[in-house]
Design a protein around this nucleic acid. Structure first.
Lengths: 193, 193
DNA sequence: ACCTATTACTGAACACTGTTCAATTAAATA
DNA sequence: TATTTAATTGAACAGTGTTCAGTAATAGGT
């Protein structure tokens, strides 16, 4: 039995999220199990409920971790690029999804009850990724079009995301699309002008 | 107990798909239950497995039905429009998702095992929707760009889909996007020129 | 009309799931 | 040291997908 003082509340929270994230990445959302996560860290199932309140709370925390990692990955990739930054950003977007298939998919497989919006922390993480994209769009846009930045960045993120989704879920395989990244880049460059 | 001769094999298949589709639309993928479908049609759970072999087989059939309905909806909507056909097509795409939230979402929430591609019939249904879109893109493209039709139609379908996904899963709400359909239309018109 | 072979159908059994909560154990306080 | 407080447990519950021996109903042959 895990002792009360083995870990502080925050440590325990971090341990569960870390191991839960690993478990998600290994087995995917459909086969994910809170009990298995408890086993992996040597605590009982009840403890997970003490810390996260519910299954949804646990998954939200794990997905939040994925958003953090995604944001970090994008920032890291962009830090080492000077030319063709839009192309690099799109590649990084796809790369993260491919390198983290299951935890990336869990972001979209999981949905809170209809009337429950994600908590503020989660929303901030989504906006952090958006901000990274906005920076690139602003840098690519000529001065007289800077005012378009926010809406255009949202739309282009959705555009790239659509191509990424069709790549990951097999739709593009069915349709015979061989180079989805190039297609996404073409749409983005067309919009930037 | 349902009698052996109540329905032919094909009738039974159709009944299960119809009621399963209704159940999916009512409760969504996460709460979907094969047992409940069996109850709703007055057959036992075992019979569903006789007909569809597995849970995955049942869901695939239900999702196939959704693709058919989606295709029919697009065709129906496009049949009554002469001007602004691209705008109408995008609106129809979003409308179907909004009017059929749960069964539409199930199309993407459900995934076959990694190594199992969808059966040919399912793939044909996806291609049928693609063909509808291709027709519109071809009609909108000037003669000297007709050769781009197939890849461009794929990319624009992904573009519209991305905007639709962000609308349905709340991402656009977090990001403050008020008119996703207009954004998608802007991207499409930009690509058509 | 009866018997038999075939097949549609059932539902209990199994191993799992998320969730709850009384009981237990360890730490903190008096 | 005795008592209060809080963290941790895991059995219990209602549900899931899946299997398959058993049963009931039909079709075919005599």
């Amino acid at each position: 039995m895990a002792r009360r003082s083995d870990h502080s509340r925050d440590e325990l929270r971090a341990i569960i999220i870390a191991e839960g994230h690993r478990h998600m990445q290994e087995v995917g959302f459909a086969a994910f199990s809170a009990r298995k996560v408890a086993q992996r860290i040597g605590y009982s199932i009840g403890t997970l409920y003490n810390v996260f309140g519910s299954y949804d709370g646990l998954i939200s925390a794990i997905n939040g971790r994925t958003l953090d990692l995604w944001h970090d990955y994008l920032a890291m990739r962009m830090a080492s690029v000077s030319e063709h930054r839009l192309s690099a950003a799109i590649h990084a977007y796809f790369e993260f999804a491919l390198l983290n298939r299951h935890s990336w998919a869990a972001l979209y497989d999981f949905r809170l009850p209809e009337d429950t919006p994600p908590d503020g922390e989660y929303q901030d993480k989504v906006r952090a990724i958006m901000a990274t994209v906005e920076t690139e769009i602003a840098a690519a846009l000529p001065p007289h079009r800077q005012h378009e930045t926010a809406p255009l960045a949202r739309s282009l993120l959705a555009t790239v995301h659509g191509h990424c989704v069709f790549t990951m879920n097999g739709t593009f395989r069915i349709l015979g699309e061989a180079d989805p990244v190039a297609a996404a880049l073409a749409r983005v460059e067309q919009a930037i002008g």
